[in-house]
Design a protein around this nucleic acid. Sequence first.
DNA 1: GTCGTTGCAAAGCCTTTGCAGGGAA
DNA 2: TTCCCTGCAAAGGCTTTGCAACGAC
Lengths: 125, 125
Amino acid sequence: MKRQTVQRTAIEQVMRHSGGPMSIEDILIYGRKIVPSLNQATVYRNLKFLIDAGRIRQIIHPMLGALYEETEKGHHHHFHCHQCNRVFELPGCVLKQDSVVPKGFIVESHDIFLYGLCPCCAQEV
Amino acid sequence: MKRQTVQRTAIEQVMRHSGGPMSIEDILIYGRKIVPSLNQATVYRNLKFLIDAGRIRQIIHPMLGALYEETEKGHHHHFHCHQCNRVFELPGCVLKQDSVVPKGFIVESHDIFLYGLCPCCAQEV
DNA sequence: GTCGTTGCAAAGCCTTTGCAGGGAA
DNA sequence: TTCCCTGCAAAGGCTTTGCAACGAC
């Protein structure tokens, strides 16, 4: 994997300008606005390449399946609004990892997924 | 869904005596020790039935896929040891839900997944 | 005897892979 | 020209569904 094709450039561009974590489908839809012939297999292959390169990260969201986001955003958590179905990135992390496990466990990392209503949808109710 | 078949009884029994969240494969393996003819489709159908009945809960674990556990265990989190590949249930929950979201968000529930080494495997290192 | 339930196989998703043609360097 | 990369189609996992036979009540 060394050649900069229009497909790879398009996928990188889509990831860079995304407002939050994206599904394969999202990436495909936006990518095809740049390269109409863009194929699903190509997206999967390039995402794998970008993951191996440490540029993006895959999240397995319990409600939404596989999502992808840039690693440069750092550690944060995800809020899923069950009304508008959007995923929000929450800045910071308040979890003191070691305080949640009994003695003896060594915590190396964690994922937190939150569910509820976003400010927009909360107002409407 | 009203009839108590040997298959359903077996699956309930397996769930009740499990040491932690179980995968479909686990349930199938242990269930077949009770009813050898037990079919995958039957397991899926009965798990769905038990979920609808509120007796068990499905967890989509980011590393391990779909797992099932009894709801009566209450809210807790899961620790995955990447050495022995077991999942541990951690008692209690220290997350103050509202402290992790910006103003306006309404948090209704959350999942926390922890990764690292269990006491057993931590000792060996 | 009813009709809910099962086993089997087929079909559906999502993701990966094989292959031949195409394009970046 | 080389050989990495793409599109397409087939194949792999996991889960769901259609259907005829079975069995709980």
